[in-house]
Design a protein around this nucleic acid. Structure first.
Lengths: 330, 330
DNA sequence: CTGAAAGCGCTTACAG
DNA sequence: CTGAAAGCGCTTACAG
């Protein structure tokens, strides 16, 4: 509520009405850091309520040097893996009474750096960076500005900024073992364009476990690219019988490409995705995945920002059996 | 960059180094509102660069009463329809040099109101509200606080706040005509739980065009719910030959349910979705949709916030022919 | 337990 | 064209 003139109510207005000082009003509103006599307290609360006082967080931020806002630099919220991560980060932040500024960098280190600068200028209390590529240490600027930062999912190997990831190796091993249990001796792998970061690690673990004979495929991290790849392979009759996709996005593209090419899944090609995004539950057929502990990862990243706790060991991914691997529908 | 003590550089530091006043430094940094002599200007720029000066936007915000931040209250970023809208809003905002605070209300009016309060306290320059239900006028508080607000996709019928939507009626008519051209006389409609907002309007237009005999189905706006519904119908042998889904989420659920039930799409059931989300291009089979002009809608909403232009007539949705309606793959 | 006042880092009228 | 200074709305040492 505003007064008739439309001007917002300030602390001073409340103090005047309660017949006290702005200091006391501040102590009442913030429950500290000083104690206030019960009677005074009541008068202040009543005045604030009558006037419809709402604190101006910007003024508070300037004085106390804390804005209550955290910046999230994200690769791409439309990719359900990052989208789900963003949701969990927002919820974890809400638990700390923080608001979330979001910026999609769209796979560009340049734009990541730009977003970090803008967020720092906005005086964020912390920075969470969840990028697809992890070339440069974009969080270095945050360190210099003494703003806590944390990498989520992916981060540079060097540098001071902590990194929260899942146990990607174990996820791959589980997926591979499962397809072998379905009788597939040769399991192909659909990797990304380069073998960097956690997704590169997935490829590496697969390579070690599957042997150097195993078929390696590559596509961009998009449904469209994987879809196109499968159609091309189908035309050349070179589609593998079983495949692990580095990301769910690619796995979903494989499903749609196989459908378009008339190749039944899992009959002609069995597929497992390694992310465990919400989307994977409702594809046609339903996608078997290793479910990354996204919520736990987001929570840990946020806790790290405020508590500066030591990073816990990565949570394990759990295999979620659905139809695309050859299991019966549950 | 910070000085050795780690304290951020301020305007006053730059002024001291350039041997001038803070006023002049401010004029140089902001390119106005006053002119500055070229020589002075050079000295200031040099000093700022040497010190690595970065303006504190919070201090600026307190003084100039504009934060450069806009709040987006969203139903659910994991729903690709809202997720795509959010991306477009962010991009439109970047065109105005604005940062975006985001909050997912998760289909709760209570949480929407809470987010509006928090964003207002953070002194946002504007508010975009994209909700699924549109019961209460949650933007009313913004009006009272004289903060520009705009509803996107959905909004209350009464109230001052402008609303940007697409031409939903035309989309339905186009989808219906297309399925009829494929020889389907009876076209069912999968509506949401209630017939409110733009999605309710879709159902209404379908009802008028398809006649009162036509089959109306209902499910929640989720893949899971539509998936379960189709399995149930399949068990009762009551699956329609052709269906328009109120949202892509539901259409995708229909695809996965049909797959699980062994019902070929489009052979046994033809499907069209009414959103045109990016996801719809890579389902199995690819989903025919009426493509809502999401980018144009987001752009218009943001322009409305800053220019207070009059709302343009809603952009028309275009039919995107893919496989699920019975068209051949392109 | 409370009041008067300084100060956070800017922007911008007000004088020169 | 430029400088000295007020003031945005808070928080918090400093006195009483």
């Amino acid at each position: 509520m505003s007064n008739p003139a439309g001007k917002p109510i300030t602390l001073a207005d409340v103090a005047r009405r309660a017949g006290t000082s702005t200091a006391v009003v501040s102590y009442v509103i913030n429950d500290g850091p000083r104690r206030v006599a019960a009677a005074t307290r009541e008068r202040v609360l009543a005045a604030a309520a009558e006037l419809g006082y709402r604190p101006n967080r910007i003024a508070r931020a300037l004085r106390s040097r804390t804005t209550g806002v955290v910046g999230l630099v994200l690769a791409d919220a439309l990719n359900p893996y990052f989208g789900a991560l963003a949701r969990h980060v927002e919820q974890a932040l809400a638990g700390h009474e923080r608001l979330m500024l979001i910026g999609n960098a769209g796979y560009s280190a340049e734009r990541e750096r730009h977003l970090v600068e803008r967020f720092l200028a906005a005086q964020v209390d912390g920075l969470v960076i969840a990028s697809a590529d992890a070339g440069d240490d974009v969080a270095a600027r945050a360190q210099a500005a003494r703003v806590p930062a944390v990498y989520l999912h992916n981060g540079p190997t060097s540098g001071e900024t902590p990194l929260v990831t899942a146990d990607n190796g174990q996820a791959v091993e589980e997926a591979l073992a499962h397809l072998r249990a379905h009788g597939h001796h040769d399991v192909a792998f659909l990797a990304g364009p380069q073998d960097t970061g956690p997704v590169g690690r997935r490829r590496q673990v697969w390579q070690e476990a599957a042997g150097s004979e195993a078929v390696l495929l590559r596509s961009d991290y998009s449904r469209a690219a994987a879809d196109a790849l499968i159609r091309r392979l189908a035309a050349a009759d070179a589609v593998p019988r079983a495949l692990i996709a580095a990301t769910d996005e690619q796995a979903i593209g494989v499903l749609s490409g196989a459908c378009a090419a008339g190749l039944p899944v899992p009959g002609r090609i069995a597929v497992i995705g390694l992310d465990g995004t919400p989307d994977s539950a409702h594809t046609a057929p339903a996608l078997t995945v290793t479910g990354q502990p996204l919520r736990a990862m987001a929570q840990q990243a946020v806790d790290l920002l405020f508590d500066r706790a030591t990073p816990a060991p990565p949570a394990r991914a759990a295999l979620i059996r659905r139809r695309s691997c050859g299991c019966e529908e549950v």
